[in-house]
């Protein structure tokens, strides 16, 4: 994952609450088995006037002129300004993949849905929670497409053009991983011995949780034969 750098960018205001992940990435595009290429279909149902289908060429599709991302002057923005409970609904990681692929690196809003919030960090996307009054202020100011914000993750700050600084809170762990672009699996596997220790204790304590799920579970409830050729541990 690419380390998160300071971002200085235009800001697209999206003034609606409870934007769900079905809206961010409609279901017909979830059939893809790839991780990339979702950007052209971001907010597909709102962004275009026709109905989008997978693998469609979007270059000549009719744009909805009223949709926030299509308003003149906001193209190229890397910061999306949102309202309450952004990203609610489905756990689909296709939503942050699409936002990232479109070019966003930062989301600013008063609140985000839990799973979506978590998924953003796995994809180098920074969701920033600010106080509702601060978000209201940014909505007023970002009505001007030339408005720009500077987001500094290291400093946990959002700086406005008049140099006022809005501070935001973020977990140390998430900040560290994002700043360094670290791979979670590598980090976790450093503790593989502890995982093994925990696991063997658990097998002793609650053996019924380790029953094999093969097609014909044995009547004796045999412990998982561990299929050593497949298991990593």
């Amino acid at each position: 994952m690419e380390p998160f750098q300071q971002i200085h960018s235009k800001v697209v205001p999206m003034d609606r609450a409870n934007v769900d992940t079905d809206a961010i990435m409609p279901k017909q595009f979830l059939k893809s088995i790839r991780r990339s290429g979702f950007g052209p279909y971001l907010f597909d149902g709102w962004r275009y006037l026709d109905r989008g289908e997978p693998d469609m060429d979007c270059t000549n599709r009719p744009l909805n002129p009223d949709f926030e991302l299509n308003r003149p002057g906001y193209q190229g923005a890397r910061i999306l300004l949102v309202r309450e409970n952004f990203g609610c609904g489905s756990s689909r990681e296709h939503a942050p993949w699409a936002l990232q692929d479109y070019g966003f690196r930062v989301l600013i809003g008063p609140s985000f849905a839990d799973i979506f919030y978590n998924n953003c960090f796995k994809n180098g996307l920074l969701p920033i929670r600010l106080e509702p009054q601060e978000v209201d202020r940014l909505f007023q100011e970002a009505a001007n497409p030339d408005y720009r914000l500077t987001v500094d993750l290291e400093q946990q700050s959002v700086m406005t053009p008049d140099r006022s600084v809005l501070r935001f809170e973020i977990d140390e762990s998430r900040k560290y991983r994002l700043l360094h672009g670290l791979d979670d699996i590598d980090l976790t596997l450093q503790y593989a011995d502890e995982i093994r220790r925990y696991e063997s204790g658990r097998i002793k304590k609650t053996p019924w949780l380790f029953r094999s799920l093969t097609d014909r579970p044995s009547a004796a409830g045999a412990i998982d034969p561990a299929a050593p050729e497949n298991d990593h541990r």
Partner: peptide, 24 residues
């Protein structure tokens, strides 16, 4: 729907499943 990209990444990294029987 939400698993193909995960398996693909495991394959690319040469990783196996930690405990196969945990999965259904």
């Amino acid at each position: 729907v939400t698993s193909p990209q995960a398996f693909e990444s495991l394959r690319i990294a040469g990783r196996k499943a930690w405990r196969v029987s945990a999965n259904l």
